[in-house]
Amino acid sequence: MGIIYGLTAALCFGLSDFMVTQATRKIQTLPALVWIQLFASIMMGSFIWIQSPQISGNAFTWGAVIVISLVNFFGTLFLYRAFEKGTLSIVSPIASGFAVVTAALAIFFGEVLPTWTLVGVFLLITGVITVSRTGGRGHQTTLAGIPEAISASVCMGAYFWAVGYLTPSLGAFLPVLITRIVQLLCALSFVRIRRIQLSKLSFSTGMILILAALLDSGALISFNLGQSLSYTTSTTALASLYSLITILLAWIFFKERLSKAQWTGIAIVLLGVIAVSM
């Protein structure tokens, strides 16, 4: 079941990132982040209220989930910015390298990982360098957004590693709600500081944002359920395969075309993710 949950998370993340890309290119990063977190908070809050779970955890646990939610906020902000300004089929596989960060933290804190994980780390770094040092064909692709994608992978990798220690006491759903609320409050603060006006949403944009919120929340829940049944490292690696879906959607709908060298770099990144999951 852990593998199924990990793959479900990958599917939801891939579809969600495609929706987020459309949203950020319509209304920009911060407004999209505010609306998605608002819709997600309402969905998760309603779901948990209906379920009426028994809430446990001490002050340290609650403080820890708030801290890692702040880290995930900056990861999400970097990710949305990468989607807004970059080529989706390039920045998505780079961001999916958060599995490397999770594996590195697991090693640092004493988890014994197989040789394939170390091979995966090397492949992911090599793939990122290959994509970053080559250009696309014509004007259809850009290397913009790569620094943001790398920053997002670092923040998200730390979040997914840490949340594995919190779900045993808080469950699979409550950390997702807390993350949503913290991200919403942070996004609103950034909007206020930068004096950005939240314009009225059209029906089509609103539906895109709602779908993005639903899919992203589903991905986080699936991940939490998966890592509660399996190793956090392997579940994270499976979830990071979402970039395969994102690349396919970008190729079909955004008509993104990459050079052979860039496709080689992306293939190396994906091989690295698969190696980490073995």
Rank of each mutant, 00 (worst) to 15 (best):
A149T: 07
G2M: 09
L271G: 15
A158C: 12
S92M: 08
T205Y: 07
T61S: 15
A187V: 08
G206Y: 09
V67K: 10
G145M: 03
Y231F: 10
E84G: 05
F13A: 05
N58C: 13
G218S: 06
S151I: 04
I94Q: 02
L215G: 03
T236H: 00
I252R: 14
A261L: 09
L166D: 00
T179V: 08
G171M: 01
W263S: 01
A239D: 05
G63Y: 06
S234N: 01
L211A: 14
S92A: 15
I4A: 15
A212H: 01
T24G: 10
S234P: 00
S96W: 03
W35P: 08
F203E: 07
E148P: 02
S89H: 11
L248A: 14
I150W: 14
I50D: 05
L118Q: 04
T117L: 04
R195S: 10
V131S: 05
A187F: 10
P147S: 13
V273P: 04
T102D: 06
L170M: 10
M278I: 13
I90V: 12
A82M: 03
L33C: 12
L244H: 03
R194F: 05
K200N: 10
I178V: 15
C155W: 06
Y5G: 11
I42M: 04
F18D: 03
A9S: 15
L220Q: 09
L214R: 00
G265C: 09
A152R: 09
C186W: 00
R133H: 12
S277G: 15
A95Q: 11
Q54E: 13
S132R: 10
A213W: 02
L211M: 12
A82I: 02
F73G: 02
I48E: 09
I178L: 05
W251Q: 11
V101E: 13
C12G: 06
V20E: 06
E148W: 12
L79R: 00
R137S: 13
V273R: 12
P31N: 09
I68V: 15
A275N: 12
I107R: 10
A187H: 11
I68L: 14
L225W: 02
I150N: 14
T233I: 04
S41V: 01
A103I: 02
T246L: 06
I208R: 11
E111D: 12
Q183D: 09
L198P: 12
G272F: 09
S132D: 12
I129L: 14
I3W: 15
L7R: 10
I146W: 07
P114L: 03
C186A: 14
I210F: 14
